[in-house]
Design a protein around this nucleic acid. Structure first.
Lengths: 227, 227
DNA sequence: GTCTATAAGATGATAGAC
DNA sequence: GTCTATCATCTTATAGAC
């Protein structure tokens, strides 16, 4: 427990984590197959052969990147499911957790979105399909609870709604970038707010909107941004 | 003009088109980089070298696949923009045209969704960025017209709404499969209907929903399906 | 923990015969 | 229009020195 020499725990595997972070960024930007081990080594300032001192293979790298990320994400989903909140709140929380993940782990989310389908066809990545099933169960459970408790429209097609929510949430990783101080961009909470609002109430200026149900925690004044 | 020998026009470049169709499917399923020229040749029942009698390179193939598809799609958008319909109808039409594209050209849409970002970084595929801009203009124009004419909520963030619609529509290519007769799956028109309904009115069972604005052309009875 | 050197295989593409 | 044969290059991965 001395404060000396090698930084323990979180920083101990530092070099390894650092390399994984570099690889994650490249995988996210160019795709797994388009990224060579040389690309990764170059970005890390070492030679490609040296990477194999840290990892078995390129595959091992994505594997570790994806499984680590998913572990954390699903722990959060589990917590929401187990909470005592009402269906509506749980649904909102799940959406917010997802946008938060996009904010904090954009590369990991991007890799999962872009490569999971293909990687999932290999034995080694079979767990991706399991996680996918697990994710479906989370959303479907929440939606069904919402319909049952009268919070959501009773005529919703649960499966279609699930896919709608899942896709719309995660696809945001394609364009979301953390706002820089003066840029006027949206924070991930802003985006989540507006998203929840549209999801619950739609974009239509229907006459009956008086029943404004989605009074989101933090209302926003509209303001355009780029692309 | 004799009815003899080689089938003219639409079927003349048949072999070429056939090879492109095979390539498109593989590119969509496995990704551009993960698909080798040998994969394509194998699927076509010829040897890899023979492909080069028809095409310059593997890149030429995606190029032709993507540009041909986009040409057709944007012609449809242009027609909608130029029409005399009100904003709401135009928006609905644009959504339906997109789902129709997913139905009729799933591989092309998938390739565009999966590879455009990366391919766009090369000069040759610069037109992808142009098309992207063009697409944004289509949707933004429609949304702004909707807000101006009072059809859509006036507090909408136009850019955010544009991204929301764009993403939610196209991402459906990941799961949509044409329903087989007895499967109980949804047709692309069914999906478009439900999508428009959620987009306009949301999923919330708000008390004020009496002002049901999205009485879509063809109402549907809810019915679950798989995954 | 990184480098040197290099093997082993895959991949995009070409030239010319049939 | 397809095949045979083949190249040049790239890519993952290994072995051992420093």
């Amino acid at each position: 427990m001395s404060a000396a020499s090698t930084p323990e725990t979180s920083a101990t595997s530092s070099r390894r984590d650092q390399l994984l972070a570099i690889a994650a960024q490249l995988f996210a930007e160019k795709g797994f197959k388009n990224t060579t081990v040389r690309d990764i080594a170059d970005a890390a300032g070492i030679l490609s052969g040296s990477l194999y001192h840290h990892f078995d293979s390129k595959e091992s790298m994505v594997d570790e990147i994806l499984s680590t990320f998913q572990e954390g994400l699903f722990a959060q989903y589990d917590e929401i499911l187990a909470s005592a909140d009402d269906a509506r709140t749980k649904l909102e929380r799940a959406v917010r957790v997802s946008f938060e993940a996009i904010h904090q782990h954009p590369h990991e989310v991007a890799i999962y979105q872009n490569e999971a389908d293909y990687l999932g066809t290999f034995d080694r990545f079979g767990y991706l399909a399991d996680r996918n099933t697990q994710s479906r169960q989370v959303w479907v459970t929440l939606i069904e609870e919402g319909v049952r408790t009268g919070v959501l429209r009773s005529d919703l097609d649960v499966t279609l709604t699930y896919r709608f929510i899942r896709d719309t949430v995660w696809v945001a990783v394609r364009w979301y970038r953390p706002p820089t101080p003066g840029s006027g961009g949206h924070t991930h909470t802003d985006v989540a707010d507006q998203y929840v609002r549209i999801l619950l109430d739609g974009i239509s200026a229907t006459g009956g909107r008086g029943g404004r149900s989605a009074t989101v925690t933090r209302p926003r004044n509209p303001k355009a941004s780029r692309t």
